[in-house]
Design a binder for these strands. Structure first.
Lengths: 156, 156
DNA sequence: TAATTTCCGAGTAAATTACTTGGTAATGAG
DNA sequence: CTCATTACCAAGTAATTTACTCGGAAATTA
């Protein structure tokens, strides 16, 4: 699994789309404005997302983008894989001259962990996040939308 | 959370260290040889790991690196944060002019997800991986160390 | 003393990121 | 029908990051 800023842009944009796309399509210009991502970078990202059928574009005035399928059927892993494309990290994929000693054990463990991270992200859907947001919005006054995360605690 | 190839190198190297460092220190030259990472790149990574006290270096002949603490006290998140350094993704950290509408909700949701990914990796220790490897090694014939992962299944 | 190893900093090619520019194609509003 | 609007597309590029090379210095052991 690879989680770069590019993947973040894609997830953030998809989240924006899921939240704002309930009534009619959302234009990339809106997402660009909302999220502070350049329009043509969004175009690139959405070209990748479209090719994986995670979004569907409608041209012309009043057009924009819809989710390609239900938000519950789109996982975070789907989104990240669409734009970041999975690259094999270890060169030995179990087959080469790397099959003895602790070297390949390391690689095997890495692959296991990597798959576990993937599964984790594959089990979180856009729909999950949207529902989580709906709960937050009702339990909090809308103006005091404070992000409560101890940033420093995770640096150590 | 950010999971780049740099972080992978670090995790892989630390795993190698945990596996081979049971008797005496491990040199970077060995890890370089084992994992196919250039020596001076390892030096850079280990400088970061050392500054976070995840490893401890011993100079001179017979020297090398030890884990800085018990493998059970080193999480994958620790390792990745040490080399990749946490960068705030959304510019609005809850305080700026981004606190109305669905824009900040998107950011807040992203931050939540990001924290969740972090927690996930914070709860997997090097020790966990080593124990998992020990189990694998005993249940499998050593030569048939096949990495069993359906790579294509996760692309879709 | 000499070999070994960490430790350190400067420099760099290659890749990736994020963006700009300049279009074309489809489509709805007037 | 025309035009504004939108997706769609491709080439180029500055900035950043990755992964590495080089050339050392400092500590430590044989």
């Amino acid at each position: 699994m690879r989680l770069s800023t590019k993947g973040r842009y894609a997830v953030t944009a998809m989240l924006d789309l899921a939240l704002n796309g309930v009534k009619g399509p959302v234009t990339l210009a809106e997402i660009s404005e909302n999220q502070g991502i350049s329009l043509s970078y969004l175009e690139q990202l959405f070209a990748a997302l479209r090719s994986k059928e995670l979004v569907r574009g409608v041209r012309g005035p009043g057009g924009g983008y819809y989710l390609g399928k239900s938000a519950d059927d789109i996982s975070i892993a789907n989104i990240i894989c669409a734009v970041d494309e999975w690259v094999e990290f270890t060169r030995c994929g179990g087959r080469q001259n790397c099959s003895r000693g602790s070297r390949c054990l390391t690689h095997s463990l890495w692959d296991d962990l990597s798959a576990e991270i993937f599964d984790f992200l594959a089990n979180i859907s856009l729909g999950d996040l949207v529902r989580r947001g709906a709960k937050e919005a009702e339990s909090k006054p809308p103006a005091l939308n404070v992000v409560a995360n101890g940033e420093d605690s995770r640096a150590a």
